[in-house]
Design a protein around this nucleic acid. Structure first.
Length: 111
DNA sequence: GGTTTGACCATAA
DNA sequence: CTTATGGCCAAAC
């Protein structure tokens, strides 16, 4: 249900991220053609209720789960990533240098 | 249709 | 390392 313009594209890109890899909001935004819309990517995921989208594989550029104040979701996200084989640092950060997934410009524009 | 806000990012102190 | 500020663009009010 890639409804309106931006959200659908975000979901499409996030679905292309395989397990065991992560991407930053900026990367997803850049894959959509605008590296400045990282916030909207996060906002789109905030409205997400679809389990078909691995939203937990999307983190911030610091390799960490930021959120605003809703910790429970962050904890669940971390649990899912660990379950997929993602390793977390002592500070709760992920090794982006190794687990960063290279997004494609237009994954499934007309799939 | 203007104002507010936001799961961000980069820079500065 | 953390905290603060500006900017960016789309959706919600």
């Amino acid at each position: 249900m890639v409804g309106p313009g931006f959200h659908g594209q975000v979901y499409a890109v996030v679905r292309t991220v395989p397990a065991g890899h992560v991407v930053t909001y900026g990367d997803v935004a850049a894959a959509l053609g605008s590296p400045r819309v990282a916030r909207q990517v996060g906002w789109a995921l905030a409205a997400l209720r679809d389990d078909t989208v691995p939203w937990h594989r999307v983190i911030n550029a610091k390799g960490r789960i930021s959120f605003k104040g809703d910790t429970p979701r962050a904890i669940q996200q971390r649990a899912r990533l660990v379950s997929e084989g993602i390793e977390f640092d002592a500070t709760g950060r992920v090794d982006l240098h190794r687990l960063r997934w290279l997004l494609q410009a237009h994954p499934l524009e007309q799939m």
